[in-house]
Design a binder for these strands. Structure first.
Lengths: 245, 245
DNA sequence: GCCGATTTGTCCGTATGTATC
DNA sequence: CGATACATACGGACAAATCGG
């Protein structure tokens, strides 16, 4: 799918960095050098590099070069700033994903549910409760709400596999962006039961609430992901912008 | 400080979006239009727009235009992907920040502390414990570790004001990026005491662990921020990349 | 301290492809 | 089909920072 030149260069450099082909704290080849290597224009290598910067893989220094600041720990955990399905994230980390569907119903939003999810009142919704396992350990309890008109034909079988795969491959929906909010909330009896938690030990958990939009600008998904507190790990690379100063 | 053209355009468009000068779900002026408005090249407006995309302010659609998908809720909370000091974040959200220094000591890293922080063994370190208040309510308990050779002359007074302001304005250090990991951990007696928590109600909390680097690629800061669970709120805008497909 | 070579940062103009209407 | 709009890519120019002689 990714056929653009800068994306290929980005992936190639990323791979080389992960494979330690450039020593840590050392400089990558200069832009002029990369232009020759990849036979492309300066803009193109710069696009690739700027993505590595936001990924926290390298740091650029005017007049000096591009320093490799990658540390292997970055590969694990959930990534921020990027939408990844549970299955994709598991595979990336070399773990075995599995999913159990607890609830699969269709419903119509009333005032309360509309408030909670952000969908209009009287929307037709698929409500799905799923338990996600990593290496056979239950880690995440997901409450998914999908707009039925955007995501027709959803079934329990699809939900057990990968909903995102169905959306993108079968329905040809383009997922664009997702607003996520991370909070800490008290555990419920449902959490306790399915995630095998003990409220004596942990009485709260990490919750990721997300509103996801397609290429028509329509919010087609609202999801609340409830994570086992002892395995929740979200990772971020933040950059300092001059704007603050 | 920000004198670059694309940054000015970015800020101007951002401001206009926040002020609702473009209706939500409506299109922004086209690139050709913006080129005339700002009297600049196409690349320059595209740079500004691409930043608005990663901020979750707009969504681009090939062949159609750029849609405003901003919602006011985005302004609050902590932002992800960007380094902001506690003081800056508070001011942005229109709240009153204050800070109390609980501990200010110098120490040398032993094997254990080196493991924990990632600093080399036998490094000279400032260790600072600070309590951050928002509108006079204690919300965050911070454990800061600064490399003394990178951050000379730090005092308790500075720590009570803003360390980042001192680093950037007085020491002229360029803060570049910060690797952060969010987890949920059990509360300690210290948390309970200073954040006025009740372990019956909440026995765990959100913890943000960060490694921050300067323009020399040196990790000069290790910080653990322990947040009151009921006020912790981290926000993110994630985009879907084609790479997954 | 100066100068020139190198390297990244910003900006411009242009051409072509692709999607939408 | 043509017009419009965004996406990718190329090439060139100059500025700013760094480094070695």
């Amino acid at each position: 799918m990714p056929k653009s030149k800068y994306d290929q260069i980005y992936k190639d450099l990323k791979r080389k960095i992960e494979l330690n082909e450039f020593a840590c704290q050392e400089l990558l080849p200069s832009e002029n050098n990369l232009i020759q290597t990849y036979d492309c224009s300066r803009n193109t290598v710069r696009r690739a590099i700027s993505r590595l910067v936001t990924d926290g893989y390298v740091q650029t220094m005017q007049g000096k070069g591009v320093r490799n600041i990658y540390s292997p720990a970055q590969q694990t955990a959930f990534t921020i700033g990027e939408i990844e399905s549970f299955r994709e994230s598991a595979i990336r980390n070399g773990q075995v994903p599995s999913t159990k569907v607890l609830v699969f119903v269709e419903l119509t939003t009333d005032e309360t549910l509309s408030q909670k999810t952000g969908f209009p009142v009287n929307s037709q919704i698929y409500y799905i409760q799923r338990l996600h396992f990593l290496d056979h350990i239950p880690l995440i309890l997901n409450h998914n709400y999908f707009r039925k008109d955007c995501v027709p034909g959803l079934t329990k079988e699809i939900a057990e596999d990968s909903i995102y795969h169905y959306l993108e491959q079968d329905l040809r929906i383009t997922i664009v962006n997702s607003r996520r909010i991370m909070t800490v909330e008290k555990i419920t009896e449902i959490d306790e039961k399915y995630l095998e938690l003990n409220s004596e030990e942990y009485n709260c958990m990490a919750v990721v609430t997300s509103h996801t939009y397609d290429s028509n600008g329509i919010m087609f998904e609202f999801t609340q992901s409830r994570h086992r507190p002892d395995s929740f790990r979200f990772q971020d690379n933040a950059v300092r912008r001059l704007s603050h100063i």
